[in-house]
Amino acid sequence: MFAEKYSDEIQAILSKYPPEQRRAAVMPLIYLAQREQMYVTKQAMVEIAEILGISSTDVASIVGFYTLYYDKVGSTYRVQVCTDLPCALRGAEQFLEGLCNNLGIRVGETTPDGAVMVEAVMCLAACDKAPMFQVQSGDGLSYHENQTVESAASLVAELRRKAQSKRRDGHGR
């Protein structure tokens, strides 16, 4: 159970907001709920709703509105390449295509082992260091800037190894 397993962290999150404004904790609680599996289960949504005194439909609507939340099982890692205008002017689209060719997948697809999905995303505030991407996993996000297809491909290889050992340990998918 989400609420029991993370009770200390949940209390710490709630303490950041006025007691009569518990709903404000919904975003950090959703992040907490998708930490292990990179998506929020229906059960977790129900528990978050109970903690905050709102409906689980409200929680689901927040999950649906924001792009960094997921309500379905997906890849262990998401490689999110910015292809917005400033990055595109510095070759980000060719970079994304080159990376996908290298991995033998198309944009938006996941490697056959289910480890890494590669997708195009909107601006990540790193326009001067394009091509760049972020890696999202359940436990956080990291930036990778001034990339080449080679540097990105070797990072993806590393992520695939990590995903395999995560699965062995019983986490992730």
Binding site: A24, I30, I54, Y66, M122, C123
Partner: peptide
């Protein structure tokens, strides 16, 4: 936040903090 440009608009940001 969690990936929404609109939250840079000040009143959308307030709504977002409010959950």
């Amino acid at each position: 936040g969690a990936g929404a440009y609109i939250c840079g608009e000040e009143t959308a940001m307030l709504e977002s903090i409010e959950g």
